[in-house]
Design a protein around this nucleic acid. Structure first.
Lengths: 209, 209
DNA sequence: CGCGAATGGTAGACAGTGTCTATGAACGCA
DNA sequence: TGCGTTCATAGACACTGTCTACCATTCGCG
């Protein structure tokens, strides 16, 4: 990520996460807070600039277009998600099956508690999808998923990347349809947990196996 | 100014599906064509009005807001999808498993060939989600899915609606991530078919079973 | 020290958007 | 004939993203 070593530290701040006073970082920060508080539709360029305390023309020096600013905000979201994953999975994790369950729950939880950000992260019409550094941010996450799948089921005719892809798509679909309310309406459920267990059982085989 | 001289709307029209000259239908029609040709972002209220040959204020009489017009367009999309499903599944139904495969393929094919419309149909920020008649349009489709699931696997501890919900979410996720290109990038595949088969096998048990 | 230049932000213009309101044309019906 | 309802037009308003002209610092370096 990053890709912008040139910008970051003019003053060599001691890397304490607090206040990178550069406007670039302030804009992203303002965008992150804004999307968290008011959702994607609040992320107009001018409003972000307002929250950052600058004029509407200021962001243009760092982000040539609105989409590039939104992309930077979304990139922050991917980074946060990845951080949570490594934080949770980094600690000793003997059982890959349990790890996958944790990962799945984490994914859905992230989508639920960061609605706006999650929506932004998958609104390809708002992002520079084909730009370097965006999908690449979510790729290592996917390899983590593939590795876990490979561990939990080393022998099957279906290649682990395909299983992982199907599982990811399933989680993504659940996150989206659940937030939308469609799944509640369709299945009559009010808790996503059974759906989640059914999904993991489906892709990985039943728990006991 | 014109728009009225050449247009006398009361000339009989034999109810053949052709040209319901009412402005309301013309606007929806124009929107459907527009989203099919140029995508969701082309669906501005003023552009739709332009394509329908009326002023930008005209739609307001039939659709109080932009979202209500977009909702009507999306509703047309749901209707088209439902029509395709009943058309394909309506004929002799020998094997529910094959029926589900057909349904799944149809779903993905619809999403692929009607990208803009499919995107619109699930852009809840562009639709009056809690309005009557929208999610209800997709509900019968879901019951069809549940019925097929119930037939193919009558005994399992997981309730058929849950299996159907997970399957639907999976298809939706695949459609979305595939169209975005994420799944191709992640799995390295260039054909969605293996993913589709793996998904059905996962939720319904392996083919032979 | 001094001065040109680069850096980083402001402010205004422009076309486009959704919504609202005032206006007016055409028609049905008494 | 005249009135009222229906239906579309046109303009205004507050936004939006982009572009461009303009300053104000600050820095490099003679």
């Amino acid at each position: 990520m990053n890709a912008h070593s040139g910008e970051a530290a003019q003053h060599r701040e001691p890397a304490e996460q607090h206040q990178d006073t550069g406007l670039r970082a302030r804009l992203v920060q303002a965008g992150v807070e804004l999307v968290g508080r008011e959702g994607v539709q609040a992320l107009s360029l001018r409003e972000i600039a307002r929250r950052a305390g600058v004029s509407h023309g200021a962001p243009r020096r760092y982000f040539p277009t609105h989409l590039s600013l939104l992309s930077a905000i979304a990139r922050q979201g991917f980074a946060d998600l990845a951080a949570r994953v490594t934080e949770v999975l980094g600690a000793g994790r003997p059982d890959p099956r349990a790890g996958l369950m944790t990962l799945a729950r984490l994914y859905l939880d992230f989508a639920r508690t960061n609605r706006g950000m999650y929506e932004l992260m998958f609104r390809h019409d708002l992002l520079e999808s084909n730009q370097l550094g965006l999908r690449e941010t979510s790729l290592p996450l996917f390899t983590v998923l593939v590795d876990l799948v490979r561990q939990v089921e080393p022998r099957t005719e279906i290649p682990p990347p395909v299983v992982a892809g199907a599982l990811w798509a399933n989680l993504h679909g659940i996150a989206q349809l659940w937030e939308w309310g469609s799944l509640q309406l369709a299945t009559g459920a009010d808790d996503v947990e059974p759906l989640l267990r059914a999904t993991l059982d489906a892709h990985l085989g039943p728990e006991g196996r």
